[in-house]
Protein backbone atom coordinates (compact mmCIF):
# COMPACT_ATOMS: atom_id res chain seq x y z
CA UNK A 1 0.00 0.00 0.00
CA UNK A 2 1.29 3.46 -0.92
CA UNK A 3 2.37 5.73 1.93
CA UNK A 4 0.81 8.79 0.27
CA UNK A 5 -2.25 8.31 -1.87
CA UNK A 6 -4.09 11.12 -3.62
CA UNK A 7 -7.29 10.50 -5.56
CA UNK A 8 -9.16 12.98 -7.74
CA UNK A 9 -8.03 15.93 -5.66
CA UNK A 10 -9.48 19.28 -6.74
CA UNK A 11 -9.05 22.74 -5.28
CA UNK A 12 -10.30 26.11 -6.53
CA UNK A 13 -9.38 29.64 -5.46
CA UNK A 14 -12.36 31.51 -6.81
CA UNK A 15 -12.29 30.88 -10.54
CA UNK A 16 -8.68 29.76 -10.52
CA UNK A 17 -8.28 26.00 -10.56
CA UNK A 18 -5.29 25.18 -8.39
CA UNK A 19 -5.69 21.41 -8.52
CA UNK A 20 -7.61 19.61 -11.24
CA UNK A 21 -8.42 15.96 -10.52
CA UNK A 22 -4.97 15.13 -9.21
CA UNK A 23 -4.05 11.48 -8.69
CA UNK A 24 -0.76 10.44 -7.16
CA UNK A 25 0.84 7.59 -5.22
CA UNK A 26 4.11 7.65 -3.32
CA UNK A 27 5.56 4.46 -1.87
CA UNK A 28 7.11 4.17 1.56
CA UNK A 29 10.80 5.10 1.63
CA UNK A 30 10.63 7.10 -1.59
CA UNK A 31 12.09 10.54 -2.02
CA UNK A 32 9.53 12.04 -4.32
CA UNK A 33 10.41 15.21 -6.18
CA UNK A 34 7.42 17.38 -6.92
CA UNK A 35 8.22 19.57 -9.89
CA UNK A 36 6.24 22.28 -11.58
CA UNK A 37 6.31 25.93 -12.58
CA UNK A 38 5.15 28.66 -10.21
CA UNK A 39 1.43 28.42 -9.50
CA UNK A 40 1.26 24.82 -10.74
CA UNK A 41 -0.33 23.53 -7.54
CA UNK A 42 2.63 22.04 -5.66
CA UNK A 43 2.19 24.02 -2.46
CA UNK A 44 -1.59 23.56 -2.57
CA UNK A 45 -1.11 19.78 -2.75
CA UNK A 46 1.37 19.85 0.12
CA UNK A 47 -0.93 22.02 2.23
CA UNK A 48 -3.87 19.72 1.63
CA UNK A 49 -1.76 16.74 2.64
CA UNK A 50 -0.65 18.57 5.75
CA UNK A 51 -4.31 19.22 6.75
CA UNK A 52 -3.86 22.99 6.49
CA UNK A 53 -6.18 23.30 3.52
CA UNK A 54 -9.52 21.73 2.69
CA UNK A 55 -9.80 20.36 -0.84
CA UNK A 56 -12.94 21.06 -2.88
CA UNK A 57 -13.25 17.37 -3.67
CA UNK A 58 -11.22 14.19 -3.80
CA UNK A 59 -9.39 12.20 -1.19
CA UNK A 60 -5.91 12.06 0.25
CA UNK A 61 -4.53 9.39 2.54
CA UNK A 62 -1.24 9.18 4.37
CA UNK A 63 -0.33 5.78 5.76
CA UNK A 64 -3.94 4.81 5.17
CA UNK A 65 -5.33 7.71 7.22
CA UNK A 66 -7.76 10.14 5.57
CA UNK A 67 -6.34 13.66 5.87
CA UNK A 68 -9.81 15.23 5.94
CA UNK A 69 -11.34 12.92 8.52
CA UNK A 70 -8.47 12.44 10.95
CA UNK A 71 -6.23 15.52 10.82
CA UNK A 72 -5.00 15.01 14.38
CA UNK A 73 -3.75 11.50 13.55
CA UNK A 74 -2.11 12.84 10.40
CA UNK A 75 -0.24 15.51 12.35
CA UNK A 76 1.30 12.81 14.53
CA UNK A 77 3.00 11.09 11.58
CA UNK A 78 3.66 14.12 9.41
CA UNK A 79 6.46 16.66 9.41
CA UNK A 80 5.80 19.77 7.34
CA UNK A 81 8.36 22.40 6.47
CA UNK A 82 6.73 25.39 4.75
CA UNK A 83 8.52 27.39 2.09
CA UNK A 84 8.02 30.63 3.99
CA UNK A 85 8.32 30.35 7.74
CA UNK A 86 9.17 32.56 10.65
CA UNK A 87 10.99 32.12 13.90
CA UNK A 88 10.15 33.41 17.35
CA UNK A 89 12.09 36.37 18.71
CA UNK A 90 13.99 35.86 21.91
CA UNK A 91 14.05 32.07 21.78
CA UNK A 92 17.25 30.09 21.71
CA UNK A 93 17.37 27.08 19.38
CA UNK A 94 17.07 24.54 22.20
CA UNK A 95 14.10 26.47 23.64
CA UNK A 96 12.53 26.73 20.19
CA UNK A 97 12.79 22.96 19.72
CA UNK A 98 11.57 22.38 23.27
CA UNK A 99 8.46 24.44 22.54
CA UNK A 100 7.66 22.47 19.39
CA UNK A 101 8.50 19.24 21.20
CA UNK A 102 5.99 20.15 23.89
CA UNK A 103 3.51 21.17 21.19
CA UNK A 104 3.87 17.68 19.72
CA UNK A 105 3.16 16.28 23.20
CA UNK A 106 6.58 14.70 23.65
CA UNK A 107 7.07 14.06 27.39
CA UNK A 108 9.54 16.46 29.01
CA UNK A 109 11.77 13.59 30.20
CA UNK A 110 12.32 12.32 26.65
CA UNK A 111 12.43 15.73 25.02
CA UNK A 112 15.98 16.69 26.01
CA UNK A 113 17.56 13.60 24.45
CA UNK A 114 15.39 13.88 21.33
CA UNK A 115 16.45 17.52 20.93
CA UNK A 116 20.11 16.47 21.22
CA UNK A 117 19.59 13.81 18.54
CA UNK A 118 17.84 16.19 16.19
CA UNK A 119 20.48 18.85 16.71
CA UNK A 120 23.18 16.31 15.90
CA UNK A 121 21.33 15.10 12.83
CA UNK A 122 20.97 18.61 11.48
CA UNK A 123 24.50 19.55 12.57
CA UNK A 124 23.27 22.34 14.81
CA UNK A 125 24.62 21.15 18.17
CA UNK A 126 27.05 24.06 18.40
CA UNK A 127 24.20 26.55 17.84
CA UNK A 128 21.83 25.13 20.47
CA UNK A 129 22.19 28.09 22.83
CA UNK A 130 21.99 30.83 20.21
CA UNK A 131 18.96 32.90 19.34
CA UNK A 132 17.16 31.52 16.28
CA UNK A 133 16.13 34.97 15.05
CA UNK A 134 19.82 35.89 14.59
CA UNK A 135 20.55 32.88 12.36
CA UNK A 136 21.39 33.12 8.68
CA UNK A 137 18.85 31.89 6.14
CA UNK A 138 20.56 28.50 5.84
CA UNK A 139 20.68 28.04 9.61
CA UNK A 140 17.02 28.96 9.89
CA UNK A 141 16.20 26.36 7.21
CA UNK A 142 18.07 23.75 9.18
CA UNK A 143 16.44 24.82 12.43
CA UNK A 144 13.05 24.48 10.77
CA UNK A 145 14.00 21.03 9.53
CA UNK A 146 15.10 20.13 13.06
CA UNK A 147 11.71 21.32 14.31
CA UNK A 148 10.02 19.24 11.60
CA UNK A 149 11.88 16.12 12.73
CA UNK A 150 11.30 16.59 16.45
CA UNK A 151 8.38 14.15 16.68
CA UNK A 152 10.03 11.55 14.42
CA UNK A 153 7.44 11.71 11.63
CA UNK A 154 7.04 8.90 9.11
CA UNK A 155 6.41 11.31 6.27
CA UNK A 156 8.13 14.60 5.52
CA UNK A 157 6.59 17.27 3.32
CA UNK A 158 9.26 19.78 2.43
CA UNK A 159 8.22 22.81 0.43
CA UNK A 160 11.24 24.34 -1.29
CA UNK A 161 13.67 23.38 1.50
CA UNK A 162 16.76 24.41 -0.44
CA UNK A 163 15.59 27.82 -1.66
CA UNK A 164 17.92 30.60 -0.65
CA UNK A 165 20.68 28.28 0.48
CA UNK A 166 24.28 28.65 -0.60
CA UNK A 167 25.91 25.75 -2.55
CA UNK A 168 27.51 24.20 0.53
CA UNK A 169 24.27 24.35 2.52
CA UNK A 170 22.43 22.78 -0.43
CA UNK A 171 24.85 19.88 -0.57
CA UNK A 172 24.51 19.41 3.19
CA UNK A 173 20.73 19.50 2.91
CA UNK A 174 20.90 16.89 0.15
CA UNK A 175 23.03 14.61 2.29
CA UNK A 176 20.69 15.08 5.21
CA UNK A 177 17.68 14.11 3.14
CA UNK A 178 19.48 11.00 1.93
CA UNK A 179 20.21 10.07 5.57
CA UNK A 180 16.54 10.56 6.43
CA UNK A 181 15.55 8.35 3.53
CA UNK A 182 17.89 5.67 4.81
CA UNK A 183 16.07 5.94 8.13
CA UNK A 184 12.95 4.79 6.28
CA UNK A 185 11.13 8.10 6.01
CA UNK A 186 9.01 8.95 3.02
CA UNK A 187 9.85 12.39 1.72
CA UNK A 188 7.90 14.60 -0.63
CA UNK A 189 10.02 17.52 -1.68
CA UNK A 190 9.06 20.34 -3.95
CA UNK A 191 11.78 22.38 -5.52
CA UNK A 192 12.71 24.47 -8.51
CA UNK A 193 16.31 23.34 -8.42
CA UNK A 194 15.84 20.43 -10.80
CA UNK A 195 19.45 19.33 -11.05
CA UNK A 196 19.50 18.65 -7.31
CA UNK A 197 16.16 16.88 -7.35
CA UNK A 198 17.47 14.65 -10.12
CA UNK A 199 20.36 13.51 -7.90
CA UNK A 200 18.28 13.19 -4.78
CA UNK A 201 14.91 11.75 -5.76
CA UNK A 202 14.13 8.25 -6.93
CA UNK A 203 10.66 9.22 -8.12
CA UNK A 204 9.29 12.47 -9.47
CA UNK A 205 5.98 14.01 -10.41
CA UNK A 206 5.55 16.87 -12.83
CA UNK A 207 2.57 19.13 -12.29
CA UNK A 208 1.28 22.05 -14.32
CA UNK A 209 -1.98 24.03 -14.09
CA UNK A 210 -3.08 21.68 -11.31
CA UNK A 211 -2.73 18.53 -13.43
CA UNK A 212 -0.19 15.81 -12.97
CA UNK A 213 1.54 15.45 -16.30
CA UNK A 214 3.90 12.61 -15.41
CA UNK A 215 4.89 10.62 -12.34
CA UNK A 216 7.12 7.66 -11.63
CA UNK A 217 10.79 6.69 -11.57
CA UNK A 218 13.08 9.28 -13.11
CA UNK A 219 14.42 6.89 -15.81
CA UNK A 220 10.94 5.69 -16.77
CA UNK A 221 9.67 9.21 -17.20
CA UNK A 222 12.66 10.10 -19.32
CA UNK A 223 11.95 7.10 -21.52
CA UNK A 224 8.35 8.12 -21.89
CA UNK A 225 9.07 11.72 -22.52
CA UNK A 226 11.90 11.67 -24.98
CA UNK A 227 11.00 11.00 -28.59
CA UNK A 228 14.58 11.13 -29.85
CA UNK A 229 17.50 9.48 -28.05
CA UNK A 230 21.01 10.73 -28.43
CA UNK A 231 23.61 7.97 -28.73
CA UNK A 232 27.38 8.21 -28.81
CA UNK A 233 29.59 5.44 -30.20
CA UNK A 234 33.35 5.35 -30.31
CA UNK A 235 35.18 2.61 -32.17
CA UNK A 236 38.84 1.74 -32.03
CA UNK A 237 39.05 0.91 -35.73
CA UNK A 238 36.90 0.26 -38.86
CA UNK A 239 35.22 3.67 -38.69
CA UNK A 240 34.14 3.60 -42.37
CA UNK A 241 32.60 0.16 -42.02
CA UNK A 242 30.82 1.36 -38.91
CA UNK A 243 29.43 4.39 -40.74
CA UNK A 244 28.08 2.21 -43.55
CA UNK A 245 26.47 -0.15 -41.07
CA UNK A 246 24.86 2.68 -39.15
CA UNK A 247 23.47 4.18 -42.35
CA UNK A 248 21.80 0.88 -43.18
CA UNK A 249 19.96 0.64 -39.85
CA UNK A 250 16.37 1.88 -39.63
CA UNK A 251 15.59 4.19 -36.73
CA UNK A 252 18.79 6.21 -36.85
CA UNK A 253 17.73 9.70 -37.86
CA UNK A 254 20.96 11.60 -38.02
CA UNK A 255 24.58 10.43 -38.01
CA UNK A 256 27.40 12.81 -37.28
CA UNK A 257 30.93 11.49 -37.57
CA UNK A 258 34.03 12.92 -35.98
CA UNK A 259 36.88 10.54 -36.89
CA UNK A 260 36.16 7.42 -34.78
CA UNK A 261 33.34 8.99 -32.79
CA UNK A 262 29.70 8.92 -33.94
CA UNK A 263 26.91 11.06 -32.50
CA UNK A 264 23.54 9.62 -33.41
CA UNK A 265 19.97 10.85 -33.18
CA UNK A 266 17.66 7.87 -33.01
CA UNK A 267 14.16 6.81 -32.22
CA UNK A 268 15.25 3.32 -31.18
CA UNK A 269 13.87 1.96 -27.96
CA UNK A 270 16.02 0.18 -25.37
CA UNK A 271 15.76 -3.15 -27.19
CA UNK A 272 16.76 -1.45 -30.45
CA UNK A 273 19.90 -0.07 -28.84
CA UNK A 274 20.84 -3.56 -27.61
CA UNK A 275 20.30 -4.91 -31.16
CA UNK A 276 22.51 -2.17 -32.60
CA UNK A 277 25.30 -3.07 -30.21
CA UNK A 278 24.96 -6.76 -31.12
CA UNK A 279 25.24 -6.00 -34.85
CA UNK A 280 28.38 -3.94 -34.33
CA UNK A 281 30.02 -6.71 -32.33
CA UNK A 282 28.94 -9.41 -34.82
CA UNK A 283 30.60 -7.43 -37.65
CA UNK A 284 33.80 -7.52 -35.64
CA UNK A 285 33.88 -3.78 -35.04
CA UNK A 286 35.94 -3.00 -31.94
CA UNK A 287 33.45 -0.84 -30.00
CA UNK A 288 35.18 1.24 -27.36
CA UNK A 289 31.93 2.43 -25.88
CA UNK A 290 28.27 2.96 -26.69
CA UNK A 291 26.39 5.31 -24.45
CA UNK A 292 23.12 7.09 -24.32
CA UNK A 293 23.01 10.73 -23.35
CA UNK A 294 20.72 10.53 -20.30
CA UNK A 295 19.69 14.14 -20.57
CA UNK A 296 18.68 16.04 -17.48
CA UNK A 297 15.59 16.62 -15.43
CA UNK A 298 15.48 20.10 -16.94
CA UNK A 299 15.08 18.57 -20.43
CA UNK A 300 12.28 16.36 -19.17
CA UNK A 301 10.63 19.25 -17.38
CA UNK A 302 10.82 21.49 -20.44
CA UNK A 303 9.48 18.82 -22.76
CA UNK A 304 6.59 17.89 -20.47
CA UNK A 305 5.44 21.32 -19.39
CA UNK A 306 4.06 23.92 -21.73
CA UNK A 307 5.01 26.98 -19.72
CA UNK A 308 3.25 30.30 -19.77
CA UNK A 309 0.91 31.69 -17.19
Amino acid sequence: MAMIEIQHLTKHYGKFVALDDLNLEIEQGDIFGFIGPNGAGKTTTIRILSTLLEPASGQAHIDGIDVRKKPYEIKKILGYMPDDFGVYDGMRLREYLDFFGAAYKIPAKKRASIIDDVLQLTDLTSKADEFVSAFSRGMKQRSCLAKTLIHDPKVLLLDEPASGLDPRARIEMKELLKTLCEMGKTILISSHILSELGDMCNTIGIIEHGKLLAAGKVGDIMDKVREVRELRIEVLDKADETENLLKSIDGLLDIERNENVFNLQSNLDRAGIVALNTQLVQRGIPVLFLEEDQGSLEDVFLSVTKGGF
Binding site: K76, Y80, P82, F100
Partner: peptide, 16 residues
Protein backbone atom coordinates in the same frame (compact mmCIF):
# COMPACT_ATOMS: atom_id res chain seq x y z
CA UNK B 1 1.59 38.71 14.09
CA UNK B 2 1.93 34.93 13.90
CA UNK B 3 0.50 35.10 10.40
CA UNK B 4 2.75 37.96 9.31
CA UNK B 5 5.83 36.21 10.70
CA UNK B 6 4.89 32.94 9.01
CA UNK B 7 4.54 30.95 12.24
CA UNK B 8 0.85 30.17 12.00
CA UNK B 9 1.17 27.17 9.67
CA UNK B 10 3.79 25.60 11.89
CA UNK B 11 1.60 26.12 14.93
CA UNK B 12 -1.43 24.63 13.22
CA UNK B 13 0.61 21.62 12.20
CA UNK B 14 1.48 20.75 15.80
CA UNK B 15 -0.77 18.70 18.07
CA UNK B 16 -1.83 21.87 19.88
Amino acid sequence: KEYELGNLDMLRMTLL
